[in-house]
Design a protein around this nucleic acid. Structure first.
Lengths: 235, 235
DNA sequence: GCGACAACATTGGGTTACAATTATACAATC
DNA sequence: GATTGTATAATTGTAACCCAATGTTGTCGC
């Protein structure tokens, strides 16, 4: 059948459920300060603002609560989490830890021929395009997409699940604190260099855990260099 | 007012919602093999088995899905996750990582006088009682309670949230693989020794990150010594 | 004024019933 | 035998309803 092989590369038509869509919308609203930290979240308000019924909204809120994006619960209702200053540090250090595990597993799989680092290319293209378009927002999404590709290649469901949780937080604080380097072109180039480093490692027979950790740390620090002082991962 | 100070130590009267209760029940059922891995999960059967309506059940399933306990979603319905052999290793290594962050923060807080390691005592008492009663199940719960106390003392909401997710997995695989040392008395003693080590560190001005990591690694390996070969945390 | 207490309004939790969408298994057909 | 069509089963989403918990308001008494 013609074109069958190319189908596998096609992005799945992502029909996410309504509740997931609502969760994304709320996370997005928090990130862009449409909903402020510590603000109350009222189900019925969301019902009329989003035009969906209560059930999907309740499901979304339950998930966001489990992910620590909103706090509260019970009859007291939910509130957007506080996102105090120290949180950034806490997120970045645990993120580094998770990403290290994932990159280690991804490199190992790529060495065995399960997939290839080529999956990193589309997000990089997206990032270059975003940089040209000057959209910090799209650049940030492409950045997360880059790391999500690693997440997929790692085949580590446990760490992957935890990363999904962290990703929401990262999206929020990056928007929040204008955390990201605003030289988008440099960001894109940095990702290309990082990809090259990864490809090199795949070619080699093995890579020390510590080397992966340091490479990731450098990568993340460079991306976030605007606030280097705050984000130094202490060990 | 008399007794006011002691109120803060009182465990909150945990009026958990029905959906949380359902989530716990399902996780429990998976742990005790009442529901087998890869088995399908049908909402309507849960409705009649648990005697609650569909909304809380759907909320519980959404949360369990976000935590990676069940997979699937969409109109295909959910399945219990596979829990393949390699998972144990993946859970333990990321757990070690999270616990290290938490213990570091907890010790730091205790040094500053925010709370005290005394919170570790009730879980230990519970563990001793469980050991005397010969209940491996209660001993396991007490073990998790011990680490949950550290989680609370750490005041690190990000890592804490991730730990909550992992805790469900730990509960399941420990029940699953008869993973735990069956000498319950020894387990309890090991926790007392670990608590003593922690108290020592709180007295000292500082503790290297690596020392905390190694202490935790030893602790967790000793508890799980039945399968030491499988669980060595590779670095 | 100021605090305590009661009445009220708001909101979330939970149930039920129903419509719509989608998967899957099975049968019919070529 | 493979494909197409059909029937069934399950999930998703909506709507209307009650109850319990919580927060607010206002009144009363000091």
């Amino acid at each position: 059948m013609p074109g069958e092989a190319s189908l596998v590369e096609l992005p799945q038509p992502k029909r996410i459920s309504l509740s997931e869509s609502v969760a994304d919308t709320i996370a997005e609203a928090i990130a862009t300060r449409i909903i402020m930290p510590n603000e109350r979240i009222v189900e019925t308000t969301l019902v009329e603002k989003l035009g969906v019924s209560r059930v999907p909204i309740r499901e979304a809120l339950k998930v966001l609560h489990a992910q620590g994006i909103i706090s509260g619960g019970g009859h007291k209702g939910y509130r957007v989490a506080a996102f105090e200053p120290g949180i950034t540090q806490q997120i970045m250090e645990v993120r580094l830890s998770l990403e290290t595990f994932m990159l280690r597993d991804a490199i190992e799989n790529w060495r065995k021929g399960q997939g290839s680092p080529a999956v990193l290319q589309p997000p990089i293209e997206l990032m270059i395009a975003s940089a040209k378009g000057g959209s910090l927002r799209n650049s940030l999404i492409a950045d997360l997409e880059f790391h999500r590709a690693i997440r997929q290649a790692a085949h580590n469901p446990i760490v992957g699940t935890l990363w999904d949780t962290i990703a929401r937080h990262v999206l929020i604080i990056f928007n929040f604190e204008r955390f990201r380097d605003e030289d988008l072109e440099a960001s894109a180039r940095q990702h290309e260099q990082f990809r090259d480093w990864i490809v090199d490692q795949v070619a080699k027979p093995s890579t020390p855990f510590k080397a992966i950790q340091e490479a990731l740390e450098d990568h993340m620090l460079l991306i976030a260099r605007k606030k280097t002082g705050d984000v130094s991962i202490s060990r």
